[in-house]
């Protein structure tokens, strides 16, 4: 599905079903350097179970026009505008990593537009290691390797994907290597700079679930606790053996955790 937000073209997949603004909607927000396709094993299920789905490519990512936006606040403004552009009054937001920070910021500042939150692979802060930032700034493949290596949980480094025949390491590297120059650095720098999650969390009043991996080395589950505590009524689901890419590594468990909330 093609939309226009702030005058630029946006691509979103609707999970294989006609987008109907009359149904409860879910907007899926991907992480740094990734795109809409990370949600393939959640979007199709929701789209065929009573929801309308938009899994978007953020500006400058995937098939959406650029440039990439350089702050979580700007991405939240964009997400609010996206909800309007799709003809929705409200939507649930499901975000992964950077996308989860965007969901928090959007839910706090545009509370009337957000009916529920699913925060996957999230932490109160997401400081990025200087080496990762430097390699991203230099547009070297090293940043793609670091994100992939640290993002995949220990078990999945040997594989064992739920979807037959797919190899997560190369999936991640393929998507990351497809980014235009500078995009990954813009994303990582935005995550690194964002320190407002706890403060924003107090303003969130909608049902919220945090979906965490107990093998997540990028946003360890323990680092999400302050955020969970700051969002009134938030529920946390920790998926055993899952790394930072839990939505792909353990898609069924991630779906199960989300479907109770969004």
């Amino acid at each position: 599905m093609k939309l226009t937000v702030h005058g630029r073209g946006v691509t979103a997949t609707t999970g294989g079903a006609e987008f109907d603004p009359g149904k409860p909607a879910i907007v899926f927000l991907h992480g740094a350097g990734f795109d809409r396709t990370v949600w393939r094993l959640q979007t199709r299920w929701f789209a065929h179970h009573g929801r309308s789905v938009l899994a978007v490519d953020f500006p400058g990512h995937g098939w959406s026009e650029g440039p990439a936006l350089d702050s979580i606040a700007a991405l939240a403004d964009w997400t609010a505008a996206l909800i309007d552009a799709a003809g929705l009054e409200r939507a649930a937001l499901v975000g992964h990593s950077m996308g989860a920070l965007v969901a928090v910021e959007t839910a706090a500042r545009f509370a009337d537009k957000v009916r529920a939150l699913g925060l996957c692979g999230v932490a109160a802060e997401m400081p990025v290691h200087p080496e990762m930032l430097e390699s991203a700034k230099a547009n070297t493949p090293k940043v793609e390797e670091l994100i992939t290596f640290w993002g995949i949980g220990n078990a999945l480094h040997k594989g064992g994907m739920v979807s037959p025949g797919l190899w997560l390491r190369r999936e991640s590297l393929a998507v990351l290597s497809g980014n235009r120059p500078g995009v990954i650095h813009t994303d990582l720098a935005a995550c690194h700079a964002y320190k407002d999650a706890i403060q924003r969390a107090a303003a969130i009043k909608c049902p919220t679930v945090l979906v965490l991996g107990d093998g997540d080395l990028m946003t360890p589950a323990a680092k999400a606790k302050p955020l969970a505590a700051a969002i009134g009524g938030a529920r946390s689901v920790v998926i055993p053996g899952a790394g930072h890419f839990m939505i792909v590594e353990r898609p069924d468990e991630a779906l199960e955790a989300l479907r109770g909330c969004v």
């Binding site: 025949g165 190899w167 390491r169 999936e171 393929a174």
Partner: peptide
């Protein structure tokens, strides 16, 4: 698809540096 075949597919994908394979 079949679980035994899926192991073979994923292993070849890994060795060939591919995102996925089909046996």
């Amino acid at each position: 698809s079949n679980p035994t075949v899926a192991v073979f597919e994923e292993r070849v994908a890994a060795l060939e540096e591919g995102s996925g394979a089909l046996g």
